[in-house]
Design a binder for these strands. Structure first.
Lengths: 101, 101
DNA sequence: CAAATATATCTATAATTCTCGATATATAAA
DNA sequence: TTTATATATCGAGAATTATAGATATATTTG
């Protein structure tokens, strides 16, 4: 992994709310209600649920999630009018190996 | 690992120079000259060498290293008038496991 | 003890990030 | 096609971080 990419990932992980979101998404079914339309968590959780649980504004959370997707930490999938976010375990693994010896 | 601690670690890793320092310290002998007084790298590298290699000011690097030690990423050892810094592999492992699934 | 060297801390300004409300866009529902 | 809902983007002010020079402290050396 390149230093610049790793720095961008670090920036996403340098904020308590964003780190908390990463934690919540480890086990979405333990932290969020099942979506009324989509009944599974295969693609993660919709923006609204994450926003409500965080307590921050819609625009702030949307920006967070967009940046987290841009640096690769999250994978976004559209289903109709909803965007679902899930962890990108592959990238997270690469990052954790990068900072490890 | 607690969310707050992990956030502080993330802050340290959210800056290119600081992340670079973490990388340099993986193999100090590849990145720094051996110290004229202390001849080994057992306790890492002195502040001056890190400062010179980084190109930033003494005060900036001193602040960086102090914060990196405070959150546990680095271990500092005094030998006379020099402070030597090395990675805290144990803490780094805990952090990398925390962000992993 | 005085001078030199290494590191830490203080203070201030510049740069970046945080955060929101307003607004735009996309999609679905009526 | 109008309205409602979900998400994204824009613009701005507040808060935090970056960074350096000046200065303080700690330690060694003469």
């Amino acid at each position: 992994m390149e230093l610049k990419v790793a720095t961008e990932i670090g920036k996403c992980l340098s904020n308590q709310t964003r780190l908390q979101i990463m934690e919540w998404l480890k086990k979405p079914e333990n932290n969020f209600p099942p979506h009324e339309t989509l009944k599974h968590f295969n693609d993660g959780v919709c923006v609204t649920y994450i926003q409500e649980k965080s307590g921050l504004s819609q625009s702030t959370i949307s920006t967070y999630l967009t940046n987290m997707e841009k640096c690769g930490l999250l994978i976004s999938t559209r289903h109709g009018k909803w965007s679902y976010l899930k962890r990108n375990e592959q990238l997270i693994k690469e990052y954790s190996e990068y900072i490890l010896k």
